[in-house]
């Protein structure tokens, strides 16, 4: 059991975030969609930071191939084929015993109502289509989406290239299409490969960098601790050079988002 003093002191080291930042962190409900390599890192950091209200989605169970990167998962979890939402719950409760968690071992699209109760959503999905659908929902319900993802492909010289991104898609701001991340071409290519994508390479360190970047971006949205007038919306991870840099092309976009008009909110009335 933690003593009252320990409870009171546990966020001392992040007081620089601002006077009522911890109160704000406690007030938000965060959603995490996808609790694999990226999502498990997100969960761990959200719990450390002090979030108390969670909505979690992942239909999958733990397998041995997950253990190279799934934070919080054990060999026993793989043997038992434990649900990934249960591993996430255990991770959160270990740090935040009073956290309120609503877990869904399903696709979010099958049980979307709890997701819409969140103000801040983290997407850690594998597909462009999954990102597109999550962004559409987040915009209709005025939720801020922070998307992360990584990919490993082989370069011309045969050397693996690790890349990734952390993107904020917030109401009233540029969307992932505006920023050039989601395109019809990418969606079509993905659809053409449907069922043949196979298991994608994933590593713990890249997922960790991207999750940390996403949490960093979200914490600035909530606390404004950097004092920066403009938040970086699209950060590019280069896993070979080991750098995270802003996508400068996004800064030159002057037009407002045309894909999600302001009035397109709430339930779709047919």
């Amino acid at each position: 059991m933690m003593s009252e003093d320990n409870v009171a002191n546990r966020f001392d080291r992040q007081k620089f975030l601002g006077g009522n930042a911890q109160e704000q962190i406690t007030a938000f409900t965060v959603g995490v969609v996808g609790l694999g390599g990226g999502g498990s890192h997100l969960i761990q950091q959200l719990a450390h930071v002090g979030f108390q209200h969670y909505v979690l989605y992942d239909f999958d169970t733990v397998s041995f191939t997950n253990l190279n990167r799934l934070v919080g998962a054990t060999v026993e979890d793989a043997e038992k084929k434990e649900k990934k939402v249960k591993v996430a719950e255990r991770l959160i409760k270990g740090l935040q015993p009073n956290a309120i968690i609503r877990s869904h071992q399903s696709r979010w699209q099958d049980e979307p109502e709890d997701l819409k109760t969140c103000q801040l959503i983290f997407g850690a999905l594998d597909t462009y289509l999954g990102r597109k659908e999550l962004e559409e929902c987040s915009r209709r319900y005025l939720m801020t989406l922070v998307d992360i993802g990584m990919d490993v492909h082989t370069g011309q010289d045969g050397i693996p290239i690790i890349g990734g991104q952390a993107i904020i898609s917030a109401p009233g701001g540029l969307c992932m299409r505006c920023m050039g991340f989601l395109t019809d071409e990418k969606l079509a290519q993905e659809q053409a490969l449907y069922g043949g994508i196979g298991s994608r390479p994933q590593v713990v360190w890249s997922n960790g960098v991207l999750a940390s970047t996403a949490i960093s971006m979200a914490m600035n949205l909530i606390s404004g601790w950097t004092g920066a007038a403009e938040q970086s919306l699209y950060l590019i991870y280069d896993g070979n050079r080991m750098t995270v840099k802003p996508n400068r092309a996004v800064y030159s976009i002057q037009e407002p988002c045309s894909h999600f008009p302001p009035e397109a909110v709430g339930p779709v009335i047919l």
């Binding site: 007030a27 938000f28 103000q119 005025l142 801020t144 917030a170 949205l221 909530i222 404004g224």
Partner: peptide, 14 residues
């Protein structure tokens, strides 16, 4: 009711 500001920054007023 609580008010949530969402977009360039985020706040909850409850």
């Amino acid at each position: 009711s609580s008010i949530v500001l969402t977009g360039k920054y985020m706040r909850v007023w409850s």
